[in-house]
């Protein structure tokens, strides 16, 4: 047994806590806490960070098990040129006018998401 373990120092493991507000929401990182194992981390998580908010699910992940970006990677790998209109609707704004000329509307987000409801046959 190492000196460290004699003092119980390895009790303090860092866990990152993720939670979901509703069934349709994504997991969000809340904060981190210390616990000796995942069972205890799970037990601590909700009352530490989500005392006042609705939670439907929680993940705890040991920080060592997360491969995050290091500062250099954040600096080097995350920049993107501002030349990608071709992959967004921004590049197709002119269609609105063209469809108007033909007395039709363009298929935009509002229109498409309204198709959730379909007339009953």
């Amino acid at each position: 047994m190492t000196e460290e373990n004699r003092n119980g120092s390895s009790f303090y493991q860092v866990y990152e806590v993720f939670s979901k507000k509703s069934a349709s929401a994504s997991f969000q990182l809340q904060f981190s806490l210390l616990a000796p194992n995942e069972e205890m981390a799970m037990m601590m998580a909700q009352e530490n960070f989500m005392r006042r908010e609705k939670v439907v699910d929680i993940w705890v992940v040991r920080r060592d098990h997360i491969r995050g970006m290091n500062p250099e990677e954040r600096e080097m790998w995350t920049n993107r040129l501002d030349n990608k209109e071709y992959r967004t609707t921004k590049g197709y704004g002119y269609l609105r006018r063209k469809w108007r000329e033909k007395e039709q509307d363009m298929l935009d987000e509002k229109e498409i998401l309204s198709w959730k409801e379909v007339k009953k046959g």
Partner: peptide, 12 residues
Amino acid sequence: EKILMEQPYHLA
């Protein structure tokens, strides 16, 4: 310079 901004992750 512009291209160098996003090229590092290609190389990586």
